[in-house]
Write a protein that binds this DNA or RNA. Structure first.
Length: 495
RNA sequence: GGGCCCGUAGCUCAGUCGGUAGAGCAGCGGACUUUUAAUCCGUAGGUCGGAGGUUCGAAUCCUCCCGGGCUCACCA
């Protein structure tokens, strides 16, 4: 804490000023005034926000107030405020929350401003804020001085980041709009938003290592969910024909630019539909979200311009491999697959099965090339223990992944609703687990019991909200679309 | 987990060949009643991430530790 500011706080109290009053009646946001200047010129308005700049001129001053809509200048004169009011100004610091009531006018340099009749302190700030300044040159280009750019500090003290870096705020406004638009569209279709357990006795619905915890009263292990898929499908069994949930999922795996231990997916299950229907729903949905958030189906991501306008191309796993490596592996034997990998200089592990090799070749040589939105369809059975077998292609399932900018943003299938087949797939997973694959799925007897009662044909999808947000906001690290990305604990050398 | 890089004032950064630390902004004092990176004068501010080592002497060289960034692997 800053000692000088503590002293100012004491002086304010001595002057009989409450540094933390209870309310303020704001009449206008900065943008309301700036956008409607002709209408409000000469009117008395009340604005409130954080003091971001203070240009003192002796017995007058110009303050920049920042509110959720932007910034606006306040103009103070001792003549207007009186000596007492001006004494308050003298004790203000950048970062304080203040309210100004006065007349809207334009200064002689043209800046739309509020001429203070009264100035009130709404909250005293006791810590200095990083001061970011910017200058706009004649061409309108902005140069930023002393940017608050240290990524660690920005993530750890996101509240400061949000105050001083307006573009950060924009990302999270868009994230909210993305979620809002998806929710609205789903609800408009009559699908039901539900909540399912985060603490699960048996985790399932994905291949990943979980976080484990313990319930004291029942003295039993519980897992934080890695997906909510199996619970949502139980609800389809129960007769809800469309259910969705925006879910925080938790995976106990490495962190990277694309991975945070907790992340958000929206999962949706719709009865009587298949994955072809789901593809159309998805491309229309994402295009609508992009339109809503960015005003266009086109968006810039790094050096690329991406267009979500439907329809998106459909590309099979083997078709993609053939397109980008020239190798037709659709009916290749295991030996031929190993040979193909060697030919492509892809390091392989002897323990890999054929599905794994195909997956690796695809991930290495095809996925990174898929910049425009593309549906990758029809995956090997062994990679997809919850997906329904392909209606015409042996060894494959009816599954698709939506890929954009070389990254998967959604994963969907025609859901496996044959309880006997599902039991066999689970048992194969258990066998894998016994061989040491700690990402293999667990056998969920209650889920099988639910399927045995009968689940209608169903299409399901999970859409990665974080990654979708990255693409639509041109952010290249997941940490920049999470308000509070996971960090190691702060060391003892830090406050 | 591997590799590369980084850690100096509240913020952004300099600091040469090893000789006990600088700038701008913010702060503090002063001038200024239409400024906008306000300006001008003055001033204060540091366990140089931490610990050890080499050395007459370490922000600087070496070792270890802590924290971070990027990247590769696994994954969504």
């Amino acid at each position: 804490m800053d000692e000088v500011r503590r002293e100012k706080l004491d002086k304010l109290i001595e002057l009989g000023i409450n540094p933390y009053p209870y309310k303020f009646d704001r009449t206008h946001l900065s943008e309301d005034i700036k956008a409607n200047f002709e209408a409000v010129e000469g009117q008395t308005v009340s604005i409130a926000g954080r003091l971001m700049a203070n240009r003192g001129m002796g017995k007058a001053a110009f303050l920049d107030l920042q509110d959720p809509a932007g910034r606006i200048q306040g103009f103070l004169r001792q003549n207007d405020l009186g000596e007492e009011g001006f004494a308050l100004y003298k004790l203000l610091d950048i970062g304080d929350i203040v309210g100004i009531t006065g007349e809207v006018f334009r200064t002689k340099t043209g800046e739309i401003s509020v001429k203070a009749q009264t100035l009130v302190l709404l909250s005293k700030s006791l810590r200095p804020l990083p001061i970011v300044k910017e200058k706009e040159d004649e061409s309108g280009e902005k140069t930023v001085f002393d940017a608050f750019a240290d990524k660690e500090l920005r993530y750890r003290q996101r509240y400061v980041d949000l105050v001083v870096n307006p573009e950060v705020r924009e990302v999270f406004v868009k994230r909210s709009a993305i979620i809002g638009e998806i929710r609205r569209q789903f609800a408009d279709n009559g699908w039901l938003e539900v909540e399912t357990p985060i603490l699960q006795p048996i985790y399932g619905g994905a291949s990943a290592r979980p976080f484990k915890t313990h319930h004291n009263a029942l003295d039993m292990p519980l897992y934080l969910r890695i997906a909510n898929e199996l619970y949502l499908k139980r609800l389809i069994v129960g007769g809800f024909d469309g259910v969705f949930e925006f879910a925080k999922d938790f995976r106990n795996e490495g962190m990277s630019r694309f991975h945070n231990p907790e992340f958000t997916q929206v999962e949706l299950y719709v009865a009587y539909k298949d994955y072809h229907w789901m593809m159309e729903m998805t491309e229309n949905l994402i295009a609508a979200v992009a339109q809503r958030v960015n005003g266009s189906t086109k968006t810039v991501f790094g050096e690329h311009e991406v267009d979500f306008k439907p329809p998106w191309p459909r590309l099979s796993i083997y078709g993609g491999i053939e397109k980008y490596t020239g190798k037709n592996l659709a009916n290749a034997s295991e030996a031929e697959l190993f040979a193909a990998a060697k030919d492509l200089h892809l390091p392989v592990d002897k323990t890999w099965g054929p599905g794994k090799i195909v997956d690796e070749i695809f991930g290495e040589f095809v996925e990174p090339k898929l910049i425009q939105p593309t549906f990758i369809v029809d995956h090997p059975v062994f990679l997809s223990p919850l997906a329904k077998k392909h209606r015409s292609e042996a060894g494959l399932v009816e599954r698709f992944e939506a890929v954009v900018c070389g990254k998967e943003i959604a994963n969907a299938f025609s859901e496996l609703n044959d309880p006997l087949d599902q039991r066999e797939r689970f048992e194969a997973q258990v066998a894998l687990r016994e061989q040491g694959d700690d990402e293999a799925q667990m056998l969920d007897d209650d889920y099988l019991r639910a399927l045995e009662y009968g689940m209608p044909p169903t299409a399901g999808i999970g859409i990665g909200i974080d990654r979708l947000t990255m693409v639509l906001t041109n952010q290249h690290s997941i940490r920049d679309v999470l308000l509070f990305p996971h960090m190691r604990p702060e060391g003892s050398d830090k406050e």
